[in-house]
Amino acid sequence: MSFAVRRVAPGEWAEVRALRLRALADPVAHLAFLDTLEHASEQPEEFWQDRTRNAASGDQAAQFVAVSEDGDWFGTATVLDNRDRPGAGLVVGVYVADGYRGAGAIEGLFDAAATWAGQTGRAALYLEVHVDNHRAQRAYERCGFVRTGEITTLDNGQEYVMVRSLTTR
Rank of each mutant, 00 (worst) to 15 (best):
R17I: 10
R17C: 15
L21R: 09
R22K: 08
A23C: 11
L24D: 11
L24Q: 12
A25H: 06
A25I: 06
A25D: 10
A25P: 06
P27F: 04
V28Q: 02
H30Q: 12
L31S: 10
A32E: 05
A32V: 05
F33V: 05
F33C: 12
F33L: 05
L34I: 12
D35I: 02
T36F: 10
T36E: 08
T36V: 13
T36C: 11
T36M: 04
E38W: 12
H39T: 13
H39A: 15
H39Y: 08
H39F: 04
A40L: 05
S41D: 06
S41I: 09
E42M: 12
Q43A: 10
P44M: 13
P44E: 14
W48S: 14
W48F: 10
D50Y: 13
T52M: 11
R53I: 15
N54R: 12
A55C: 04
A56W: 06
S57T: 15
S57D: 14
Q60G: 08
Q60D: 14
F64E: 12
A66D: 12
V67A: 08
V67I: 01
S68H: 09
D70E: 07
D72Q: 02
W73N: 14
W73D: 11
W73M: 13
F74V: 14
F74R: 11
F74E: 13
G75E: 11
T78W: 02
T78M: 08
T78C: 05
V79M: 09
L80P: 00
L80W: 07
D81P: 01
R83P: 01
D84N: 13
D84Y: 08
R85D: 14
P86E: 15
A88M: 03
G89C: 08
G89R: 01
V91R: 00
V91H: 00
V94T: 08
Y95A: 03
Y95D: 02
A97D: 02
D98P: 00
D98H: 08
Y100K: 07
G104I: 11
I106F: 09
I106G: 08
I106L: 10
I106M: 11
G108T: 03
L109F: 00
F110G: 00
F110N: 00
D111A: 04
A112K: 06
T115V: 07
T115D: 08
T115A: 07
W116S: 11
W116R: 06
W116A: 05
A117K: 01
A117F: 02
G118W: 05
G118E: 03
Q119S: 07
T120P: 00
T120H: 12
T120V: 13
G121D: 14
G121N: 08
L125A: 04
L125K: 03
L125R: 03
Y126Q: 05
L127K: 03
L127Y: 01
L127D: 03
L127W: 00
E128P: 00
H130V: 04
V131N: 03
N133F: 06
